[in-house]
Simulated scan of single mutants.
Amino acid sequence: MTTRAPGRKNGGADARPPAGRSEVGALLRDWRLRRRVSQLELALRAESSARHISFVETGRAKPSEEFVLKLAEHLDVPVRDRNALLLAAGYAPRFARTPLDDPSMAALRTGLDQLLRGFEPYPALVVDATYQVVAANRGIAALLDGLPEHLLAPPPNAMRIVLHPEGLAPRIRNLREWRGHLLHQMERQIALQRSAELRALYEEVAAYPVEDPGEDTVTDGQVPHFALPLRIEHEGQVLSFMSSISTFNTPMDVTVAELAVETLLPADPATVKFLQDRG
C-alpha cells in the first residue's frame, strides 16, 4: 500500500509515516483551538483539506514554509509567534525584530513623532506589547504632571501609571469601570498571545488596591457616550475622553507589529474647550 503525497493545494507538504505529533503541529493545533476554529473551517480558509490539516497537526505530514505562514495568517497568529512556528517546523525565522533606536527605524520614529505632535493638544502615546511607553506627546505629559518619579522613570509602563494607587488612579472618577475595562483588555490579549511578561504585568496591576472613588457626578446635559469614557480630574476640571487604538497594517517586523498608537479623543465640549485653551 502506498501513500500519495498531498498536492500543491495542500501547501506543498510531503507525507511521511505517522511519528507522533510534531512540535509545529502541536503549536498549530493550539493556535487553532485558541481561535475556536475547526479543522474543516481552517482547511477552507487555507484552500486545503481537513485531512491534511489533521496530518500536519499529528505529525504525519511536514508542512512547507509557505503553508505554515498561510495557516498562521488565517489563525491571526502574532508576528513574533509566526517565527516560533517556522523554527518549530525547521525553517528560519521570517520576521526581524529591529530595535526602535536602530538607524533603519528612523523613518518610523519620525512618522510617529509627527503623528503624536499633530494630535496635540489632545493626548496620544505609543506603547509596545507589554504597555511600555515608547513615545508620548505634550497632552499626555500634562495629564501625568505631579506623578512620582518611580512611575515615570524609563521605561514607563502605561498600565502601571494608570492603575497604580500613586499614579492616575486616584484622579480617575470612574476608576472601577475603567480598571475593569483595562483588565479585560489585558485578559483578551493574554488569551490570544503567549506572553509570560504580559501575564506578570496583569497579575501585578490587578493586585493594586482600589479605593472607592465615590460618586462620579454626571450631568444630564452631557453628550451621550457611544463608548466607555475615561473621566479624569485635572487642574480642578473633570475631563472626559474616548480611547482609540491603532496598529500597523501587515507589519513585517516584530517590533512594528507590537506597537499600538492610543489617542484620547475629547468626549464632550467642555473637554475640547479646556484642552484647546491650554494648547
Rank of each mutant, 00 (worst) to 15 (best):
A191Y: 10
Q189N: 04
L201Q: 01
M186A: 03
D102W: 03
F226W: 15
V205E: 03
R179S: 03
T130H: 09
V162W: 10
L175D: 07
R173T: 06
A200F: 08
S104Q: 11
D101S: 13
H150E: 13
M186S: 03
R109W: 09
N174H: 13
L182G: 12
R160L: 10
P156D: 00
L182E: 14
V162K: 01
A142D: 10
L228S: 10
D128Y: 03
L112Q: 00
E166S: 04
D145I: 10
Y202W: 14
A200K: 04
Q193F: 00
H164D: 14
Q222T: 08
R179A: 03
R138A: 15
D128W: 04
D145F: 12
A129R: 15
L144E: 12
I161E: 02
P103R: 02
P154K: 07
P156G: 02
P213Y: 08
R194C: 09
Q132L: 06
A207T: 09
A129I: 14
A141R: 15
R109I: 09
I172H: 01
T110N: 14
E197M: 13
V210E: 13
A206I: 04
A135S: 15
A107N: 00
L144C: 09
P148C: 03
E166R: 07
L228T: 09
F119E: 11
L112K: 00
G221A: 12
L112G: 01
G221L: 13
V134D: 06
E149W: 05
P165N: 01
E166Y: 05
V133K: 04
P123T: 03
P103D: 00
E211P: 07
L163T: 08
V134C: 08
L108Q: 02
L228P: 12
F119K: 10
L163P: 13
R176D: 14
L144P: 10
L144I: 13
A124W: 08
V205D: 04
H150M: 11
P121T: 14
A169E: 01
R171V: 10
P209H: 11
A129C: 11
F226H: 15
V133N: 03
Y202E: 00
R117Q: 14
D212Q: 11
E120F: 15
Y202L: 08
